[in-house]
């Protein structure tokens, strides 16, 4: 029970990071982006590449940090992966979504995002192989926090949770206290007024993709650190991330964070009752319950 809660909180942190970017894109560009979860895969794999690169150039970086399986090289790689993923997100927008948006074909954006997801996922599979990979082959043992009730926690998990919370706090500060954050909210609320108020739309849209891509990359690395890296990370996480977004209410960053934790925790708790085979269906159950009870999410504005 306690163990499920702890695991759920960790999964929740990862889902939250993914959901923040998705909720911002869905709010500003008004489409459900089914390729958002693939950004987690891009992040996880690019960190793998950077990690090999840094560890090769500067072997000293490949030393582990304290009790973690994390190395300095991987931390550095994570930042590089965040940049690379943010850039990928902007490029995908330029090449696909922006061109469809410019045609005024709003409905087709969702459709296109399916195609984009399919391409990214399988190109990654083609490049990196279909087998699962790990950042580190060293086994890190979990620390027994308590024996009754049993609670095992890996140092990595504590690190991931703290890092995720830190990232969310930084983002929250940017959105609520800086004019950059106001600009993002302004564009989401009224793009044409934002433009005549001196905001360059294309910049703000690029910024949203960069933020979304960076957070997704961090989530991907964290996921890879706790599980393993394979081309279907996106496929497995797309529904939990959507569930978190809908639970939180489209456009609410705070809602996405809370939604992520709700989805992560309830998915783990549900497995106490349900056979484990049903776990992929749990996020949809959550969506279903929410649509019945509070269709606009916990913090969403009324949508039409």
């Amino acid at each position: 029970m306690i163990q499920s809660l702890a695991d759920g909180i960790l999964v929740g942190a990862i889902v939250s990071l993914g959901a923040i970017g998705l909720t911002m894109v869905m709010h500003m560009l008004r489409f459900a982006n089914f390729s958002h979860a693939e950004l987690l895969s891009i992040g996880a794999y690019s960190a793998l590449v950077f990690d090999a690169l840094f560890s090769g150039i500067l072997p000293i970086l490949a030393n582990k940090i304290g009790p973690l399986s994390m190395t300095w090289a991987l931390i550095l790689s994570m930042f590089c992966a965040m940049g690379a993923t943010g850039l990928s997100a902007v490029l995908i927008d330029r090449f696909v979504f922006k061109r469809i948006r410019d045609k005024g074909d709003e409905l087709s954006m969702v459709f296109a995002s399916f195609g984009v997801a399919l391409i990214i996922r399988n190109v990654l599979g083609l490049i990196f192989g279909l087998k699962s990979q790990l950042y580190s082959n060293d086994i890190v043992f979990a620390v027994m926090v308590s024996s009754d009730p049993l609670l095992l926690i890996k140092p990595d998990q504590v690190f991931v949770l703290l890092a995720a919370l830190l990232i969310m706090l930084v983002l929250q500060f940017v959105l609520s206290r800086t004019t950059l954050g106001y600009a993002l909210r302004a564009v989401a609320e009224n793009p044409s007024l934002a433009e005549v108020s001196g905001i360059r739309l294309s910049w703000v849209i690029a910024l949203v993709w960069i933020i979304g891509g960076m957070l997704a990359a961090a989530a991907g690395v964290f996921y890879g650190l706790n599980n393993h890296i394979n081309p279907v990370i996106g496929r497995d996480l797309v529904l939990p991330i959507f569930a978190a977004t809908i639970v939180g209410g489209i456009g609410s960053v705070f809602g996405a964070v809370l939604g992520g934790f709700i989805v992560g925790i309830s998915a783990n708790m549900a497995l106490l009752i349900l056979p484990s085979g049903y776990s992929p269906a749990v996020p949809f159950m959550i969506i279903l319950v929410l649509l019945l009870v509070r269709p606009n999410g916990l913090f969403g504005e009324t949508q039409t």
């Binding site: 959507f242 809908i246 969506i287």
Partner: peptide, 14 residues
């Protein structure tokens, strides 16, 4: 009755 992409998400989940 919701935003059009809710249908996409829900059917995907189904």
């Amino acid at each position: 009755h919701l935003r059009h992409d809710y249908l996409a998400i829900a059917t995907f989940g189904v």
